[in-house]
Design a protein around this nucleic acid. Structure first.
Lengths: 191, 191
DNA sequence: ATGCTACTTGACCAAATAGTCAAGTAGCAA
DNA sequence: TTGCTACTTGACTATTTGGTCAAGTAGCAT
């Protein structure tokens, strides 16, 4: 299946923004990596910013969906699956960190459109976690609790753990942090 | 006491970098806000990057020292003082977030010198927390535990909580996250 | 007063930036 | 075949970027 020009742009934009931040993302490099000319890009998108927002939105939403909707679709073992997903370091890029956190942190206070987009993506992430916790409570795998607040804490701890590993260059920091988070969550577990 | 040219530059640089990130920090704006001319700046610093690194280093180290060394200097009540400091939202700027996290996240994977500097500052922050926990254990306010790992988890959870508030624009997210962190820590407390 | 050093001034520069546009081409519908 | 639309090409522009530098000034030691 052939990749369209638009898709090539979205992929190259996401990579560039993920690696260098939005402000550090050079349009020239995006175009070079996509193999697309400038005028062509401006046919599909009105500006660098618009293209970046579309790329971020699409790519992160897809990733969240792929990662968490399959847990929600389980018949049981929600909490265990969530913990397994959290502890799976194979898919994580500790050099670059979490795309949501990166861009939210860079842009939330600088641009209203980025602010809105990243707020939605952050809340989407948090909602996935809350829904998984709700399923776990419903399935009696876990004590009833304030799942909204719990989901907030889990996402915060996860983002913080990823940042620790990025800041120190040590993936073990992520593993250690998540281990404590796991202990904390297991105290609510019925197994 | 008169503010020297060098100090004016450091202060303006820190503010600009804190607000806009390093890549988004415009030298022209720093100079305008400092009221210093370009050639004068290049008398004190070799480059924008060098000046930014000095500003970040100095300002963040000072802030960490002011905030945590007075807790370490207490005779007792270490854990309580730490929790109080964590819950004190008056001094926090949730719009801009945490300077360490901001710059570490933006620059750690882009520049080796930033990487080194932010790693040191991050570790310094974590060491303050560990030392406070050690004092608390020593004073029997708290059960013996792996304070290094605990400090890692606390810093991660705090950074994540600040990011949550920044991403959603809701300071309550920080408060709620820290409340759970507090509950977790109180389980280790002897009071 | 002289001379030295530390500092300041602001004009200048090359490179990179996002964005524009007129001219082209490919492919499809009539 | 004609003509229309969707898309591509790449040269061009205005602005901003960090950085340079020669000329100047203030203040202090001799």
């Amino acid at each position: 299946m052939k990749e369209t020009t638009r898709q090539k742009l979205i992929d190259a934009t996401f990579e560039e923004v993920y690696s260098h931040g939005y402000q550090g993302a050079a349009l020239a490099d995006i175009l070079k990596n996509a193999g697309v000319h400038k005028g062509s890009m401006y046919h599909y998108f009105g500006s660098k910013k618009e293209m970046a927002l579309v790329a971020i939105q699409e790519r992160i939403s897809t990733r969240n969906f792929e990662k968490y909707s399959k847990i929600l679709a389980l018949e049981s073992g929600y909490l265990r699956a969530l913990l397994t997903a959290m502890k799976d370091t194979k898919q994580r890029d500790f050099k670059r960190g979490c795309p949501i956190a990166n861009i939210a942190q860079e842009m939330s206070n600088l641009d209203e459109d980025f602010n809105k987009t990243m707020k939605l993506l952050y809340e989407e992430f948090r909602r996935y976690i809350k829904n998984i916790l709700d399923k776990a409570v419903e399935a009696k795998e876990m004590q009833a609790c304030d799942t909204k607040k719990m989901a907030l804490f889990i996402t915060a701890a996860l983002e913080g753990a990823i940042l620790s590993a990025k800041a120190t260059g040590n993936a073990q920091d992520y593993i250690d942090s998540v281990e404590i988070l796991e202990e904390y969550l297991r105290a609510f577990s019925n197994n």
